[in-house]
């Protein structure tokens, strides 16, 4: 089709950072995430042991020795909050990436192969979507036993449907394009086409979605560990910390629950901003 299009040089901007609204959010998000990662990596080396209980030091308010105060067991809250960064970020990102890979593959298969494969995958996805991810994870853990691994699997399964849909939608339109029959003419089998052509062309939106999903995963994981599912005390994790600390608010000791909550906010916010900024950039 001969269309008058924007000149070649404007197309090359694909690799440059965007200008415009999405840009600011994206930069803030990236900065925030970078700061968190930095703190999470460097912090534990400089800070005291997060699990070291000190008798007689419990529930001290924030002070120069304990910037975030101490919790009920006398553990330094700054050390614990920072230690939790690694666990929560790794879990959150890990779950999101796993859900993205599995979900996108399923979606691509469903979209490309159609027929019974599509039917089965779509009905399963619909079923999964009927439950909030959190509840799904609870169900998985109820079946398999309470451990961090099973909890992570549960949250992963709960996060997959979104990816399945994104990549299936794209696969449906990609398979109508001529490079697919061209690949068959080149001697490709179904596997060659799915992994060589369909997956790379359908992974775009899921990749961007991964960031936002990581944020939600962190929330789910924290909520589950708040209930004692998955991550158990005394492990430092934002959810368990809030679980240990929230009752202290009644006696006016706000800091044990506040700081983990704040960092969780930063983490989820960072992922949201990045995801939002990326999708705005992709759509310009």
């Amino acid at each position: 089709m001969t269309t008058a299009t924007v000149p070649v040089s404007a197309r090359r901007r694909r690799l440059a950072l965007p200008r415009g609204h999405g840009d600011l959010g994206l930069r803030i998000g990236l900065l925030l995430l970078a700061v968190l990662v930095l703190i999470g990596v460097v912090g534990p080396l400089l800070l005291p042991d997060p699990n070291a209980t000190t008798a007689g030091q419990s529930l001290l308010p924030p002070s120069p020795e304990h910037l975030f105060g101490t919790d009920r067991y006398g553990r330094d809250l700054l050390a614990r909050t920072v230690a939790a960064i690694r666990l929560d970020l790794v879990l959150g990102i890990g779950v999101a990436v796993a859900a993205m890979l599995l979900g996108s593959l399923l979606g691509a298969l469903a979209g490309y192969l159609g027929g019974i494969v599509d039917e089965v995958v779509m009905r399963l996805t619909d079923a999964l979507l009927a439950f909030p991810g959190f509840v799904l994870a609870l169900m998985v853990v109820a079946f398999t036993g309470n451990s961090l691994v099973f909890m992570a699997i549960g949250v992963t399964i709960g996060s997959m449907p979104h990816f399945v849909r994104l990549s299936r939608a794209r696969a449906l339109s990609e398979r109508e394009l001529d490079y697919i029959p061209a690949s068959k003419l080149a001697g490709s089998g179904r596997g060659d086409i799915i992994f060589g052509h369909i997956m790379p062309n359908t992974i775009g939106a899921p990749l961007i979605q991964t960031t936002v999903t990581a944020g939600w995963a962190i929330l789910d994981i924290a909520a589950l560990s708040f209930l004692g599912v998955g991550v158990q005390p005394p492990t430092a994790e934002w959810g368990t910390m809030i679980s240990e600390g929230y009752s202290e608010i009644l006696t006016g000791k706000w800091w044990p629950a506040f700081f983990p909550g704040l960092f969780m906010l930063f983490a989820v916010l960072a992922f949201q901003l990045i995801g939002d900024g990326l999708s705005k950039w992709k759509n310009t």
Partner: peptide
């Protein structure tokens, strides 16, 4: 073999020209 009407749609946008032209050799 076949050549299609819309050249841009008959080439995988995520592949390089080299990989595209080599595909028949790689597969067959």
């Amino acid at each position: 073999q076949m050549v299609f009407q819309h050249a841009d749609q008959s080439l995988d946008q995520t592949w390089t020209v080299e990989r595209i032209v080599a595909e028949p050799l790689a597969r067959m």
